[in-house]
Design a protein around this nucleic acid. Structure first.
Length: 198
DNA sequence: CAGACGATTGCCT
DNA sequence: GGCAATCGTCTGT
């Protein structure tokens, strides 16, 4: 399939987030392809967004978000989880889309092994679950998603408009209004792999 | 430099 | 349904 070009990411973040649904995240691991269809994402947009890591300005951790679009912003949280974002908008404008859930497509045996015997439904139905399932961690922070390599995103089948649902982002109760309630979470309603989003 | 806490998950009751 | 795990990052002194 076709790797998404940089121009795909160099657009308003909400458009990129919506359009990522149905695309395929591909992890090249030891010569093997592990892949999943993106079924849930969230947008984090700029320094004004009270839920965005860029709200305190540029720091060592969030530096990738301030760089050019089409790169992976991967960070560590809760002392044990890695989360994957894709950087959007032009350089200097900090914004990204968090990948929250996938539908496993390729490399299922390897993914199952990486998920240590957990039921299939829990393999990639959450932002930290999917990074574990595809062996994604801080070593991949900053990688270019638009050039062949360990991590890329390929075009997929465009989902029908009616299949796309939206709602508030998950896990940002600390954020002030109006950011807490912004409907910047997008998911495919008919997918069984969308996160529970407690 | 101390202190608080997180874009979550999985186990325990 | 509740809560511990576990540590890097950020804030304020």
């Amino acid at each position: 399939m076709t790797i998404l070009p940089r121009s795909f990411y160099d657009r308003p973040t909400l458009e990129v987030a919506r359009d990522l649904l149905g695309c395929v995240l591909v992890r090249q691991l030891d010569g093997e392809r592990l892949a999943g269809r993106i079924v849930e994402v969230e947008a984090y947009i700029g320094q004004e967004d009270g839920a965005c890591h860029a709200r305190f300005g540029r720091t060592e951790r969030n530096a990738v978000m301030f760089g050019p679009p089409g790169h992976a912003y991967i960070y560590f949280t809760y002392g044990l989880h890695w989360l994957l974002n894709v950087v959007t908008e032009r350089a200097g404008q900090p914004a990204a889309v968090l990948i929250r859930a996938l539908e496993p497509l390729e490399g299922l045996a390897r993914i199952a092994a990486l998920r240590a015997g957990r039921p299939r439904r829990e393999w990639t139905s959450g932002p930290a679950r999917l990074t574990r399932a595809l062996a994604i961690d801080g070593a991949l922070n900053g990688v270019d998603l638009t050039a062949a390599g360990p991590l890329v995103i390929e075009a997929g089948q465009t989902p029908p408009e009616a299949a796309i649902h939206t709602g508030p982002r998950v896990g940002i109760a600390y954020a002030p209004e109006p950011w807490r309630s912004r409907p910047w979470r997008f998911w495919l309603a008919d997918s069984a792999d969308v996160s529970k989003g407690r």
